[in-house]
Design a protein around this nucleic acid. Structure first.
Lengths: 342, 342
DNA sequence: CTGAAAGCGCTTACAG
DNA sequence: CTGAAAGCGCTTACAG
C-alpha cells in the first residue's frame, strides 16, 4: 500500500527527473530538454515541466549528469599561491562568476611549479571538468596536451598571450614595469635598482620592462639587477633593502617586483633611519590595501586582478556554452599609483 | 574489424572496471572490491586485479562511483574569508591532507555570515560530499539539520566545542586572550583597551577573555572596550588607534583582536609620533609573518591554524572511514609571542 | 570469498 | 517537436 510503489529501496528521497516527468505528464527526455533550456521543446510542455520542478523542489543530480554526459559541472582553477593576496582576489572574483552560473570550482595551488600544475591538471581532469582557468602561460607540454585531448575550454589569466595561444585575460607585465620605471626616471632618479624574488615568469617580465625603460634612458646597468629565487615576503624585502643599500654603486631608487617586498623595505628603512624617498625612493607592484597606509605610503602599480578573474570566468563560460568570442585576448591595463615613497 | 568490438560508440577511451575485470579474469564485483581494499578478497585475485589496473592505467570514474554509492569524493570546506591569512593557512593544510587521501576540496567563503554558510552547505550537499569541515560553531539550525539529514561526518575548526557537539579541533580563544591580557598586566599596564573589529564569534570570545583577565585584576572598565563591526584591515586599525588615543581616559596599552589591526595601529603611531611601547603598548592576535618585522615588532598570540587544518582533516577522514575517535575534541593550544611592542 | 542481477539518475543517439 | 531504448561506469543488495 505504499504511495510510491515504483521507488527502489535505494532511493535517496530526492525527487528525480522521472518524478518530474510523471507529474508534468511528459517523457523524461522532454523534461530533460526543458530543464536544460533546449529550444526544441513546446512552450506549453516546458511550462508544465517547470511547474513540476517547482512543486517537487527538484534538483538535478550532478553525478548522474556527469556520468551520462561525460562532463561535470566543475571548473578547475589553478593559481600559484594563496599567500599572495593578488591570487586571492583573482580566485574569489572567478569563483563568484562561476558559482553564479552553476559551476563548482576545483581549486589547485601550483606553488609556482609547472610540474605541480601538470599533476593537478591530471588529477582534476579525471573529474571531466567543464573548463579550466590557469594562471600564466608557462604550462608544460603535457599539461597543454591533456587539456587539448579532452577539447577542454581553457582561459589563461594575468598575462597577455600572443594571438597564437588559446584565450587570455590579463595585462602587459612588461609595459606596467616599464611605466613605473619611467615614472621614477621622470622624478629624477638615475640609479634605479630592480629587486626580484620568486623569479616566476611574471616577475621576469617586470624585470624586462624595467630593463627596457632603463636602456631607453641610457641608464641600464646590470649591477642594478637584484634577484632572489626565494618566495616573496616582508622579511625578504627587508633583507634585500639592506643588501642593496650596502652594495657598491649607490642607488637612488629601488623598484621591488611586488608590494610585499616593498613593505619589508620600508620597515627596514625605518629601522636603519634611511629616509624614503629623500635618500632612496621605493616602488612596489600590485597595490595591496596596506600600501596606502605604510610609512611612507607606497608608490606602486595597481593591477586589475579581480577584473581579470571575473572576465576570465565569463570568457570561459562563453566558451563552455560554445559561443564565439569576439575578443579572445583581453588586455585590462594597469594604473600607476604615485604616493609618498617616490 | 575494430579491435574492441564491445566498446560502445560513446566510449571515452579510458579503461573501465569491466576492462580491468576482464584482464584479471575476475568478475567486475571482485575487481571493485579489490580496488577499494575490501578484506574479503582472495589475495591472489586481488593481486591480479592490481596488476591489471597498472597495466591499463585504470582510474575509477568519480561520477560513476558517486552515482552508484551516493557519496562523492568531495569534501566541503567552509571558511569565513580568504583575505585573512589565518584562514588561508587553515585551508591549505586541510586541503593538503584531504588531497593526499584522494578527496577533492569544495571551498566555500561564508563572509562571516551564517546565512551564506547555510546557502553554501545547501548547494554543496547536492554533490553528496563525503564530509564537511566548518569554521566556528555558529551554524544555523538549518545548516546542522541538512548535515545531520545526510548523516554527514563534520568537524568544526578553530574553537573548542563542548562535549555535546560533534567533533572539533581548535583552541580556547577566551584563554588565549586572557593570557595576553595577563602578560600586559604583568608588564605594569593598567588601562588596557581591547579593540575589536568584524565582531564574529571568535573575536567576541577574545573580548571575553580580556574582560575576565581585567576583572580578575580589578581593572575592568567598559570604556576600555572598542568595537567596530567593519571588516578588519590595516586602515581600520590605524583609525581605531587614533580614536582610542584621542578618547577620554588615557590608555597605556591596546590589545587588538588581530594582527592586521595592530599593524595599522603601529603605522598610525609612527605617523603621529606616539612611542610604542613607551607611551602605549600594542598587542595583536595570530602572529602573521609580518609581525616579526613591524616597527616595533609586534607582541601577539601564535595560533596553530595550520595544525588545526591538518588535524581537522585527519579527524574527518577517520570519521569518513567509520573509525572510532579517541578524542573527538582536540585542544591545540596557543603560544604567547612577546616582542618589542609590549 | 565470489558473482549475476539490478539499479544509481541522468543524457546520447536514433527514429519518427 | 517528442519519446523508447540503451547506456554512462560504477556499487548495492542478494544469493550461494
Amino acid at each position: 500500500m505504499s504511495r510510491e510503489p515504483s521507488r527502489s529501496l535505494r532511493a535517496t528521497g530526492r525527487a528525480t527527473l522521472a518524478d518530474v516527468a510523471r507529474l508534468a505528464e511528459v517523457s523524461p527526455m522532454t523534461a530533460s530538454r526543458a530543464l536544460r533550456g533546449e529550444r526544441s521543446v513546446d512552450p506549453a510542455l516546458a511550462q508544465r515541466v517547470h511547474d513540476a520542478v517547482l512543486k517537487l523542489g527538484y534538483q538535478p543530480d550532478p553525478a548522474a549528469r556527469a556520468l551520462a554526459s561525460r562532463r561535470s559541472s566543475h571548473v578547475v582553477v589553478l593559481i600559484p599561491s594563496l599567500t599572495n593576496l593578488l591570487f586571492v582576489d583573482l580566485l574569489e572574483a572567478a569563483q563568484d562568476s562561476l558559482r553564479a552560473a552553476g559551476f563548482q570550482t576545483l581549486i589547485g595551488i601550483t606553488h609556482y611549479d609547472a610540474g605541480e600544475e601538470e599533476q593537478l591538471v591530471r588529477e582534476h581532469l579525471l573529474h571531466r571538468p567543464a573548463g579550466v582557468l590557469l594562471t600564466g602561460l608557462e604550462q608544460t607540454r603535457a599539461t597543454r596536451r591533456e587539456i587539448a585531448a579532452q577539447s577542454l575550454p581553457c582561459v589563461t589569466m594575468m598575462e597577455n598571450a600572443s594571438a597564437a595561444e588559446d584565450c587570455s585575460v590579463g595585462f602587459s607585465q612588461v609595459e606596467a614595469a616599464a611605466a613605473m620605471t619611467r615614472h621614477l626616471l621622470q622624478r629624477g632618479r638615475r640609479r634605479i635598482a630592480f629587486a626580484a624574488a620568486q623569479l616566476d615568469a611574471r616577475t621576469l617580465q617586470r624585470l624586462e620592462g624595467w630593463r627596457r625603460a632603463m636602456a631607453a634612458a641610457g641608464r641600464h646597468d646590470a649591477r642594478l639587477e637584484w634577484r632572489d629565487a626565494a618566495a616573496s615576503s616582508v622579511g625578504l624585502g627587508a633583507r634585500m633593502f639592506e643588501q642593496i643599500l650596502a652594495a657598491k654603486p649607490p642607488v637612488d631608487a629601488i623598484f621591488f617586483c611586488n608590494d610585499d617586498l616593498a613593505h619589508g623595505a620600508l620597515l627596514a628603512a625605518l629601522r636603519l633611519g634611511i629616509e624614503v624617498p629623500q635618500r632612496v625612493a621605493v616602488a612596489g607592484f600590485n597595490d595591496l590595501p596596506e600600501s596606502a597606509y605604510t610609512v611612507p605610503t607606497l608608490t606602486t602599480v595597481r593591477t586589475p586582478r579581480a577584473e581579470v578573474g571575473r572576465r576570465a570566468a565569463e570568457m570561459l563560460l562563453a566558451r563552455i556554452r560554445g559561443q564565439a568570442l569576439e575578443t579572445p585576448h583581453l588586455d585590462l591595463g594597469f594604473e600607476l599609483v604615485v604616493r609618498e615613497s617616490s
